[in-house]
């Protein structure tokens, strides 16, 4: 019973095995990819492990506070930002091993030529609430 974030990168992750950009795929390959992602989410809902899944637009801004009474400063978008997040899935699973197993399956989504992309997904555990029993919790 722990939540994990499966993070998908546009940039910043090591190169995928089947590393062909999506705009070079056939429309059918794109449909197959989308279908795989949807089926994966539906299957996780069915196993009672799905929490959330969202995709992000690539274009983004950096924003910061610029002092009392002044509008925030914006900067970007930066074409060369090292790390760019494409989207995520949040899962709620019984073990770390299960989180790794599911990330592996998600990484097998088909890409160019209908072959698995083998893309690198980042798996990050959520920080949890603090347990009620702290002095001698048995885990």
């Amino acid at each position: 019973m722990a939540k994990y974030l499966l993070l998908k990168h546009y940039r910043g992750a090591p190169a995928a095995v089947n590393d062909v950009p999506m705009d070079r795929w056939t429309p059918e390959e794109i449909s197959a990819h989308v279908q795989y992602m949807n089926d994966f989410a539906a299957r996780l809902e069915e196993t009672g492990e799905f929490v959330d899944s969202k995709a992000l637009a690539p274009g983004g801004m950096f924003v910061r506070y610029d002092g009392e009474g002044r509008p925030p400063i914006t900067d970007g978008p930066f074409a060369e930002t090292k790390d760019l997040i494409a989207g995520w899935m949040v899962i709620d699973v019984d073990s770390y091993e299960r989180a790794i197993e599911l990330a592996g399956e998600l990484s097998a989504a088909p890409g160019a030529g209908g072959k698995p992309i083998h893309e690198w997904l980042e798996v990050r555990p959520f920080l949890t609430h603090s347990p009620t029993v702290t002095e001698c919790s048995l885990k």
Partner: peptide, 15 residues
């Protein structure tokens, strides 16, 4: 209570 969608919890229980 477990911060998951209701549909997910419904499936977990029926499974």
């Amino acid at each position: 209570a477990y911060l998951v969608p209701e549909a997910t919890m419904a499936q977990r229980i029926s499974r």
